[in-house]
Structure formats: structure tokens, C-alpha cells
Design a protein around this nucleic acid. Structure first.
Lengths: 261, 261
DNA sequence: CCATAACAATGGTTAAACCATTCTAAAGAA
DNA sequence: TTCTTTAGAATGGTTTAACCATTGTTATGG
């Protein structure tokens, strides 16, 4: 076999050659032969290694980039750098599903309720003192913003979201953390668009958060779960009201998802 | 305060014509200007429309293909056809996360337990008679396979999985259905690899399923949820045993995730 | 010593050609 | 007619060679 750099790359032969290149590089990354931070050779060198044209190689790199496995930088000392896998792709895919209309905001809200319930349950069981302290600090910030009033609405929602993300992190389950963050990021757009800031909502929201953090502090998993669920339900019903109003105004949008009990 | 990234903004990558092409075509698809089944013009025509080279256009198509927005076919009357968005990308991304070691099979199993509990709860509330009938038919099939014995283990697992997917579908929540299927598909690989077929497991598994379907039939949501959770816990503990044995053999793997309640 | 300019290495893009696959329609045989 | 075979055309897949744009490095000059 012709000398092939230091890595175990082979010549590409199948149909859809670029796919073969994708597979080989991906395999090298997932098997930890290439670690995050490592640089791939320059395109003109890789081209030769795989014995393909530069265009074909670039199609392969494009796919790997979109998979989130590499990042491509410009200029001298640029090139393809191996990335830490993350939830960015999950995030984008979920956003696509929502935008394409295959997922209703009601479905996403219901899903969120389930996730947050579980995450709160686990966090109450597992959070240590240090983590509880960080939640309390965030809660204090939420209190401060609530006292400011509706003008701090956006910052309040940020802090609210931050608390939920921390709780997901403290659940100790990476997958719950990923999924929770993805859902948070995607549903937040709807809140920003559809949720009017009112003092009542801020205050109730804060009370929910306080109760939730309190349950976690006391390691009362069942209460934490219940509180988190009710907290999300409140958001969801606000959203449904809004949705109902919108549907009422534009009569052409006749088809609505059957409301769930 | 938290970064801007919560919103759907993306890094403004200057020089990247193909990204511009991606955005335009994606926008056309998501705005329903292009519907599933529609064909895009041939590469040589599109090239001219966007006033880019064929190579650049192909990089754009490659990305859209990987996003799951189009499918590309070969030959006369081939070309890029607009696809129904689906869970394939979610599936692939989750598989990547697992393979890259960022997700342990224990995390995935725990997550699965939460999802199945919720899905069972919703299905018990919402499944109609027709759907319940389909579950009973699948349950009968599971009974038949159990009577055959361990030689039917693989088929039994297939039927088991089918029942869980149906229940997720009958939850009436598309997102739960997607996520459930993704998790099922990905965790199945571990079961295939690590789970030894025994008559006891088959029988217990069947009993769990029977109880679950029964709870759904009786619209007993709480019992359905509890049963589904216990069912998954059984699998998870079998997996943990296996994992413990494997870890025991290789002493360097000292750290184990704390078992929960 | 520092600012500036020239250079080099990299990814991004273009162009024209050819190959491989697949559908279609014409041609021919039954 | 009807079926089979074959030739053609349209499409995506690949190659080549050149040039452009960005960016880090190095040499230059004050």
C-alpha cells in the first residue's frame, strides 16, 4: 500500500466517494485516533492521501463540518480542526422540525413539562451543597429582577432559563441536560414572541422558582418534580391562550390541534 | 447575563457563498414554497440561477442533504427532491453522542425510563379503541414468541420495541414519538450486544408488557406510567450487571455511576 | 523597538470536461 | 400487436487546473 501519512486512511473507491472519505475521517475521530483540537492536513494534502479531487474532498469536509465533528478555519494555519461533539446539531434539527410545522408549540411544551419534571426529580436527589448554593444565588437574582418590575422581564426570563439549565445539569444525566437545553433554547423563541410581560406572571413565576429551589434544597424529589411540572404548565396555558386568540382572529387557520385535556 | 446564542442567530461567516445558497433553498422549503416531493431544477440549471459554480452549488446541496431537507437521486429524472423532515438526523446525532463517549448507556437508559413513563401515561389517557386493538394484537404476538422460547428472542425484542413505539405514537405528541423512537433505536444496539437471552427475562418482559397494555386499555394512566418505568428499570439493571462484570474484569474502570433510588 | 509592507499558506471559487447511472424511446424480434 | 433489446439523453458524480480572498508570518525601514 502507498505510504499514507500517519493515520490509517485508505484510498477511496466506492460510489459516492465523498461518503467514503466522510466515513474514514469520522471513524478516525470517533475512535479517538484524532482528538478534539487536532488539525487535519491541508486540503491539498488530504486530497492526495485519499486520492480524490479537491472538490470531492471538500464535499466530504462540508458534511463533517455540518455533523459538528470538525470546524474549518480560514487563512494561513487555518484548516479543519477536530471539534468537541455537542448538542448544536440536536438543537438545529429540533429547530427545523418546529419550523417545518411537524411539531406544534403545544407538543413541545408538553414534552418540556415531562423533561423538567424528571430533571427536577433527579436534581433533588443528587445535587450537592455547592450546586444548591449556585441555585440559590440565581434565585436571589430572580428576586432582584422581579422587584425591579416588568422592565426587567427579559433579564428575568434569562435567569429563569439559567435556573432550569442548572437544574438539568445537576440531574447528573448528560442526555437530560442536552435535551433540556435544546428544548429550552427552542421554546424560548415562542415565549419571546407570544408572552406579554405582566407583573402577575413575574411574581407567580418567581414563586414557582423559589418553591422549586426549596424542594431541591430539601431533597424533596417528589415535590420538586410536581413544582417543575406545574411551573411549565403555567407557561403552556399562557401560550395556549395566546394561540387561541391568534386562531380566533385569522379564520382561515381552521385546523387546530385538538386541545389535550 | 447569558449569551445571545439562545436566539436563532448564527455566526455571520463572511466568505461562504454556498452557505447563502443553503439558506435560500432552506427558506424556500421551510416557507412551504417548495413542498415535500417537489423537485429542484437540475444542478446545471440551479448553478445558473444562483450564478455560482457547480462545485459551490454541490457543496450547498450536500449540506441540505445532510440536514435531511432534500434527497438526491441519480440518473435521468434524478435530482434533488424535497423530503419530509424526519427524525433521521436526530437519530444520527444521538448515535454520534453515544459513540463519542459523551453519553453513557446508563444515562441513555435512565432517560429512556423517563420518556417511556410519560408516553405510557399519555397513551393511557388518549388511546382510542382502534389503537388499543393494535396493541393487543402485538401483545398476542409477544405471547406467541414467548411460548416458542429463547430461540425467538430476537423477534421478541422486535415486538417489544414495536409495542413501545406504538404506545409513543398513541401518546398523540409528535415530539415524544420522535424522541422515543430515537432512543429505542440507539439503545437497542446495546441490548443486542450485552443482553443474554434467558427464558426468565422473556417471561418477565412479557408480563410487564401485558400489564402495560392492560393499564392502557383501562385508561389507568398512573399504573401505565409506573409499569413502563419498572419495565425499563429491569432492562437497565440487567445492563448494569453486565457493565459491572465488564468493569470488574478490567480493573482500571473504577468509577461507576451511583445507582438511584 | 515598533509600525508597515511583502510574502506564503490556507480555504473558497470558478471553469470545462469527462465518467457513471438511470430512465426513455426507438428498433427489432416473436 | 406485444415483448425484448438497444441506443440515446439527461442527470448526478468526479477530475483538473487555475485564480481569488483571508490571515498569519516575516522582512523591511523608520
Amino acid at each position: 500500500m502507498p505510504e499514507i501519512k500517519s493515520l490509517g486512511f485508505q484510498k477511496a473507491t466506492k460510489n459516492r466517494i465523498f461518503q467514503d472519505v466522510v466515513d474514514q475521517i469520522q471513524e478516525a475521530i470517533l475512535s479517538n485516533e484524532l482528538k478534539p483540537g487536532d488539525m487535519l492536513p491541508a486540503e491539498r494534502d488530504l486530497r492526495e492521501t485519499f486520492n480524490v479531487s479537491r472538490g470531492t474532498l471538500r464535499e466530504a469536509l462540508r458534511v463533517l463540518e455540518h455533523k459538528g465533528l470538525i470546524e474549518i478555519r480560514l487563512g494561513t494555519s487555518g484548516g479543519a480542526i477536530v471539534k468537541n461533539t455537542g448538542m448544536e446539531q440536536l438543537n438545529e434539527t429540533l429547530a427545523l422540525l418546529i419550523r417545518s410545522g411537524e411539531l406544534s408549540v403545544i407538543d413541545v411544551g408538553e414534552f418540556r413539562a415531562g423533561i423538567e419534571e424528571k430533571v427536577a426529580h433527579l436534581a433533588a436527589e443528587r445535587a450537592d451543597q455547592n450546586q444548591i448554593g449556585r441555585l440559590e444565588a440565581l434565585l436571589q437574582e430572580a428576586r432582584r429582577l422581579t422587584d425591579i418590575g416588568v422592565s426587567a422581564w427579559d433579564d428575568f426570563l434569562d435567569t429563569d432559563q439559567e435556573i432550569h439549565k442548572k437544574i438539568a445539569e445537576f440531574s447528573g444525566n448528560t442526555l437530560y441536560k442536552f435535551v433540556n437545553n435544546v428544548v429550552q433554547d427552542n421554546i424560548r423563541r415562542y415565549y419571546d414572541r407570544f408572552l406579554d410581560p405582566t407583573m402577575e406572571r413575574m411574581e407567580q413565576n418567581y414563586q414557582d422558582l423559589a418553591e422549586l429551589v426549596d424542594a431541591v434544597r430539601n431533597k424533596d424529589a417528589r415535590k420538586a418534580a410536581r413544582t417543575a411540572q406545574q411551573h411549565v404548565y403555567a407557561f403552556n396555558s399562557w401560550m395556549r391562550e395566546k394561540e387561541a386568540v391568534r386562531a380566533g382572529r385569522s379564520a382561515k387557520d381552521a385546523e387546530q390541534k385538538t386541545p389535550k385535556k
